[in-house]
Simulated assay, not measured.
Amino acid sequence: MKLDNQTVARRYGKALFDVSLEKNTREQLSLELSELKKFLHNVPQFKDFISSNAIKPDAKTEMMKTLTKDTSDLLTNLLNMLYDYKRLTNLEDIINEFDRLNDEFEKTVRASVTTAIKLDEDQKKRLESSFANVVGANKVIFNQKIDESIIGGVILKSESYIYDGSIKSKIERIKRLLLK
């Protein structure tokens, strides 16, 4: 029975996270996976190259040697195993699952913050601190978006929380009340 991508990512990501905890390499592995994810984004042809039947196995083996040259034993083993089982196309999803489990372990929340203007560092830190208190996190990592159409205020979205304090939404609420 062939497993779907989500199941593969969950299983491998969980196994990778558990082993990194056992070997006390979680933080280092997280940094390596972050770099690997950047590589996957910067070289989108990698997936096509590694999964193509037109590319000779020797060329793929050389690519794998280059890719694993400076990686930890755990990451090297993962990459080689994924290559052997023809699951390297699932690598980004596996990294995402590892990151999700790592965030859960560290009580880190990733959220998007939308504002009409760019936040300075002080504003960003205060907002992160306030949001961390609201969601019960140790740390908040914001992905900031600028959207002038919200006029002012802030919109915060995480996996389990949405707060819309934008001027635009307040104006919309007032319009609805007036039209009743």
Rank of each mutant, 00 (worst) to 15 (best):
K124A: 05
F142A: 02
R126F: 06
K23T: 14
K170A: 12
K65S: 08
D48R: 09
I95T: 01
L177Q: 15
D93K: 09
L21R: 15
E159N: 11
D4I: 08
G153M: 08
N80A: 00
T115C: 04
L31T: 10
Q144C: 11
T108K: 12
D70F: 08
L36Y: 05
N42M: 11
G165W: 04
L82N: 10
I55Y: 10
L3A: 13
D93S: 12
I155F: 03
A54M: 13
L36I: 12
K107G: 02
H41A: 13
I94L: 05
L3Y: 15
T114K: 11
V43A: 13
S112K: 15
E104I: 02
K47Q: 12
D48N: 14
L127F: 12
L75F: 03
Q123D: 08
S72R: 15
L91D: 06
A59Q: 14
K145S: 06
N133S: 15
L40K: 04
S129K: 15
S51H: 06
S52D: 04
K14D: 06
F131D: 05
G13M: 01
A111K: 08
E148P: 06
K175Q: 12
K125F: 01
L31Y: 09
E104A: 13
K157G: 01
K37C: 00
P44Y: 08
K65Y: 09
I151S: 08
D18I: 04
S30D: 05
N42T: 14
K23D: 14
L127K: 09
T108H: 05
N24C: 00
E32V: 06
S52C: 07
L36P: 11
T89H: 11
D18T: 11
I151L: 14
E148G: 08
N138M: 09
K37G: 02
L82T: 05
A59W: 07
E92V: 12
K118V: 05
T61Q: 13
K124C: 01
K175A: 04
T7S: 07
Q45C: 02
Y83A: 12
V154L: 03
A137I: 11
L31E: 14
I117T: 15
D93Q: 12
E97W: 00
V154C: 04
T89N: 10
E172R: 10
K60I: 03
R176V: 03
L21T: 01
E92C: 05
Y83M: 12
R26N: 01
T66K: 14
D164M: 00
T7R: 08
F39N: 12
A116Y: 02
N5I: 10
T61H: 12
N77S: 04
G13L: 01
M63H: 05
E172Y: 07
F105C: 00
F17A: 04
K139P: 01
F17H: 07
A15V: 08
S160G: 12
M81C: 02
T71M: 10
L101W: 03
V135N: 02
T89W: 05
F39W: 08
I95Y: 01
F131N: 06
D122S: 11
S52V: 07
K124H: 01
I141M: 13
D147S: 04
K125T: 13
I167L: 13
D93G: 11
K47P: 00
D147N: 14
K175R: 15
L79V: 07
N24W: 00
R26W: 03
Y163P: 02
D122L: 07
D84M: 03
D99S: 10
N138L: 10
D4V: 03
G152F: 03
V135M: 05
S158W: 07
S169A: 03
V134C: 02
M64T: 04
E159V: 07
D58G: 00
